[in-house]
C-alpha cells in the first residue's frame, strides 16, 4: 500500500526551520509498515534555500522514495483550505492508499479536512500499527485502548509520533529525488492568516521533545511556586507543562496543557508538582518513562500512577531541589 506522509510542521518561530525532521522521521518509519512506497510532502511558501534544505533532509531518511516540495505562496501558514485541496489532488493522481500525519493541531486541521474531501475515514492518536488494516488508538481520555479495523481503500491516519521510533538518516544529503509538483491554479484560499503568534517558551525546549518535563498543577501555581518551578526548569533544561485547571486560571498558556484535550508527551522524566492526577491529565503523560509526583495529599490519585511519590509541599520541594543545584533561593 502506497503512503503519503505530510511532513511534520515545526512550531513557527521555534527554530526557523520549516519542518520538524525528527517527528517526520517517526512518521516515515511508521509508514514503512504498509510495505509500499513512502513519499513525503513538504509544504513551503516558496522554492527557496530553506525549503530545499528541509526537503533534502527528508530525502535522506531511510525508506523515503520521493519528497514532494510543494512550494507556493498560497501555502504560507499551512492554511487548511488550500493545503487540503492540494493534497487531495496529489492523492488522487498518485493513488496513495494511506495518508499519514501526526496528531498535532496543524495536522488535525489540514488532514481531517483532506479526509472530508476524499470521503475517507480519519483516525487520530494512532499509537500502534498492527498491519495495513488494523491500528490501535486510545479513547475515553486514554482509559480505553481500542483496536480499530480499516475497511476502506483510502484512509487518513494521524499518529502519535512519540509512539514510533524514528527512521534513520542514511545520507548527509538527499538520497532520493525532490520533486516540485505543478501547482493547481484554482487552490481555494478563502481564509486570511492575520497573525501567527509563536507563544513564549523563553528558550525552554519543546514539550514534545524535552527529556525532562516539569508539570504545574493547582498546588504549585501560586506566584512563588510558579517562579521556582520555572527556575528549576531552566536549571534542568526542562520543558514546562500544566494541567487544564492552571490553564483555566490563566496562569499558563493553552499550549502548555497536557492531557486528553492537550498535548501527549513522552519524556524520560515527568515531575508533577501539585497535580491531583485526574485521568484527563494522566492521558497525556502515560508514555513518560519515569513519573514522579510531589503532592501534600498522600492519598492523591497521582501517586498510584507515578513511579515515585513525595508527600510534601511543592514549594518546599522546589526550594530544596534548587538549593541542591546551588541556586540561591529566598529563605522561608
Amino acid at each position: 500500500m502506497d503512503v503519503l506522509v505530510l511532513a511534520a510542521r515545526d512550531a513557527p518561530g521555534a527554530s526557523g526551520a520549516l519542518v520538524d525532521e525528527e517527528r517526520t522521521a517517526r512518521l516515515v518509519a511508521a509508514a514503512r509498515r504498509f510495505s509500499g512506497v513512502v513519499d513525503v510532502l513538504l509544504p513551503a511558501a516558496a522554492d527557496d534555500g530553506a525549503a530545499r534544505m528541509a526537503a533534502d533532509g527528508l530525502a535522506a531518511l531511510q525508506g523515503v522514495r520521493r519528497v514532494w516540495l510543494a512550494a507556493d505562496a498560497r501555502l504560507t501558514g499551512w492554511l487548511a483550505e488550500p493545503l487540503a485541496a492540494l493534497l487531495a489532488d496529489v492523492v488522487r493522481c498518485e493513488g496513495y492508499a494511506r495518508i499519514i500525519g501526526d496528531s498535532s493541531l496543524a495536522h488535525r486541521d489540514v488532514l481531517a479536512r483532506l479526509a472530508g474531501l476524499l470521503r475517507a475515514p480519519a483516525l487520530t492518536d494512532v499509537v500502534d500499527i498492527i498491519d495495513a488494516d488494523t491500528v490501535r488508538r486510545p479513547m475515553y481520555a486514554g482509559d480505553i485502548l481500542a483496536t480499530v479495523g480499516i475497511r476502506s481503500e483510502l484512509a487518513v491516519l494521524l499518529l502519535r509520533a512519540v509512539a514510533f521510533a524514528p527512521a534513520e538518516k542514511i545520507a548527509e544529503e538527499a538520497a532520493v529525488e525532490v520533486v516540485v509538483p505543478e501547482m493547481p491554479g484554482n487552490l481555494p484560499c478563502p481564509v486570511e492568516l492575520l497573525e501567527e503568534e509563536a507563544g513564549d517558551s523563553s528558550g525552554r525546549p519543546d514539550l514534545g521533545r524535552a527529556r525532562i518535563v516539569l508539570g504545574m498543577g493547582r498546588g504549585a501555581m501560586d506566584t512563588e511556586s510558579r517562579a521556582l518551578l520555572l527556575q528549576l526548569a531552566e536549571k534542568l533544561g526542562a520543558a514546562v507543562a500544566a494541567t487544564r485547571a492552571v490553564v483555566d486560571e490563566g496562569l499558563a498558556p493553552n499550549d502548555w496543557q497536557v492531557g486528553q484535550t492537550g498535548k501527549q508527551i513522552a519524556p524520560a522524566l515527568y515531575i508533577a508538582f501539585g497535580i491531583s492526577g485526574a485521568h484527563q491529565h494522566l492521558a497525556g503523560i502515560a508514555d513518560a518513562e519515569t513519573i514522579i509526583a510531589v503532592n501534600t495529599d498522600a492519598d492523591a490519585p497521582i501517586f498510584a500512577a507515578a513511579d515515585h511519590g513525595l508527600a510534601m509541599d511543592a514549594r518546599k520541594a522546589l526550594k530544596a531541589l534548587l538549593a541542591e543545584l546551588g541556586e540561591h533561593v529566598p529563605d522561608e
Binding site: 475517507a120 483496536t147 480499530v148 480499516i150 494522566l282 502515560a286
Partner: peptide
C-alpha cells in the same frame, strides 16, 4: 469503515 474490533482497559498503575 473503521469498526471497533476490540477494546481493553488501559493499565495506568505504577
Amino acid at each position: 469503515h473503521t469498526p471497533l474490533l476490540k477494546v481493553e482497559a488501559t493499565r495506568r498503575r505504577r
